Computed example of a mutant assay.
Amino acid sequence: MTRSYLPGILAMAAVVVASNILVQFLFGQWLTWGAFTYPIAFLITDVMNRVYGAPAARRVVLAGFVTGVICSLIGTQIMGEFGPLVTLRIAIGSGIAFLVAQLSDVAIFSALRSGKWWRAPLASTLVGSTLDTALFFTIAFSASLIWIEPANDVSWATEVLPLLGVGPMVPLWVSLAVADWMVKLSLALIALIPFRMIVQQLQGRALA
């Protein structure tokens, strides 16, 4: 590991820790504050991939995964109003979603890196974000996966309500997932601006 990777590793760890804390605080009816910080992880991965290559990006992803596991272990020991802050299903869903989504992001970015500058970060983040949302919410809350943790009551998440309060009738967790996914897609577009600026600065520094 070179010293050049350290800022990316520290940034990823900070985002993962912040997101694990902020997910405890609601933002409106369908989101938590963590929904706005977690997408920054894709920006960090893409910057590392563009500037230092896929191996460096994968090291940063691994650092984020390890940090997430530590946060989950700590969360299982903290009791909230309805039990541990982090249940087994949430821990498993979070870990699998992060690893699959981020490694997919690295692979897609690498495949598209020779195209226009915006194509690789946009496509990789859109696919990675979609995978992340689908995997996490399905594993953590779907009634079909209750066997993962039978003692964990997720009936609140399976209550059937209108999608985002206005659409067809779906389980509550689907509305939560759709809202989370929409935030990720929006931030994927916005993140192109800092991506371009950070990459230009780092590449310019490397050539200096």
Rank of each mutant, 00 (worst) to 15 (best):
G80P: 14
W30I: 02
A140N: 08
C71I: 07
A13D: 00
P84Q: 02
P168A: 15
F141P: 08
Q102E: 13
P171T: 08
G34P: 13
L22M: 12
L189M: 09
I96C: 04
A208Y: 05
Q77R: 13
T158R: 00
Q203K: 14
I146L: 05
I21M: 07
A191R: 01
A91D: 04
G75Q: 14
L135N: 04
T87F: 02
L10H: 09
I78Y: 13
S142P: 08
L99N: 00
R58D: 00
T158Y: 01
N49Y: 06
L10E: 10
W147N: 12
R205N: 07
Q200R: 15
D132S: 06
D132M: 12
L207V: 12
I44D: 06
T37P: 07
E159N: 10
S110W: 01
L43Y: 04
I40T: 15
G8F: 05
A188C: 01
G128D: 00
F27A: 13
Q24K: 11
T37C: 07
P39Y: 02
E159L: 11
A208S: 14
L43Q: 01
S104E: 03
I44E: 05
V61L: 06
A13R: 00
L6H: 06
W156Y: 13
L31R: 10
L99M: 14
F27T: 09
W33S: 01
V61H: 01
V100E: 11
I190D: 00
A11M: 11
L135F: 09
T37A: 08
P171Y: 07
S129H: 01
